[in-house]
Design a protein around this nucleic acid. Structure first.
Length: 198
DNA sequence: TGCACGATTCTCT
DNA sequence: GAGAATCGTGCAA
């Protein structure tokens, strides 16, 4: 079952935690790729200085975060990579989102390897990073703003991950965010070898 | 119009 | 562990 809109229309910290274990699916002409979400981070603007929408910064880039929940927020970073978020939160118009940081490859692995430009049979480092998973899944800026509640890009429900198997840490590479640097808003599945870093 | 910089990754040491 | 790659975005002017 595709996760319904109401899944995303809740507290973003809860959404980030519960996205762990779900299946991200992308159907394309090249084929379908599927990965289990094993790592995610919450970005809760406008108060969160690490968020692109900090202080209600509303621009063409951040516009999607102000729109309906359960949509894809895809942006380019460092001039050459993409990152993928799901918009979330209980209040329409309040910019919040969950960054998907790592996947465990489940289906379409040969296609993922091809898109990543890796040698055959090399499955290490396929989707263990926010931009790596975008490359492997074929996620580009064209998908910015698309609805995650229907194909071609959507998230399938799956068995919940137990609280005892979830690790919380501070977020990665947001050293510029003052006190928001240290909040424990990064969630990943304990002992899963596909997370971006322990 | 100009310019500093980033929710990263890869390579070389 | 350090440095390069590489350019859209955001803000100052």
């Amino acid at each position: 079952m595709i996760l319904p809109r109401r899944f995303y229309e809740r507290d973003t910290l809860v959404v980030a935690r519960e996205l762990l274990g779900k299946l991200l699916v992308h159907e394309t002409a090249e084929g379908t790729t599927v990965g289990k979400i094993v790592e995610a981070e919450a970005y809760i603007g406008p108060e969160d200085k690490a968020s692109h929408a900090y202080n209600n910064r509303r621009t063409s880039r951040t516009e999607v975060q102000f729109g309906p929940k359960g949509h894809a927020y895809v942006y380019q970073i460092y001039g050459m990579y993409y990152c993928f978020d799901a918009t979330s939160g209980p209040i329409l118009g309040k910019p919040e989102a969950v960054l998907i940081r790592a996947l465990e490859p489940k289906d379409g692995i040969a296609l993922m390897i091809k898109r990543r430009g890796l040698a055959n049979n090399q499955t290490a480092n396929l989707t263990n990073g926010p931009s790596r998973l975008c490359m492997a899944m074929g996620i580009t800026k064209k998908l910015n703003g698309t609805d995650l509640c229907r194909p071609p890009l959507y998230i399938e429900d799956c068995k919940p991950v137990g609280e005892e198997d979830i690790v919380k840490t501070k977020r990665v590479n947001v050293e510029y965010a003052g006190r928001w640097t240290r909040v424990p808003w990064r969630f990943f599945i304990k002992d899963n070898k596909f997370v971006s870093k322990p």
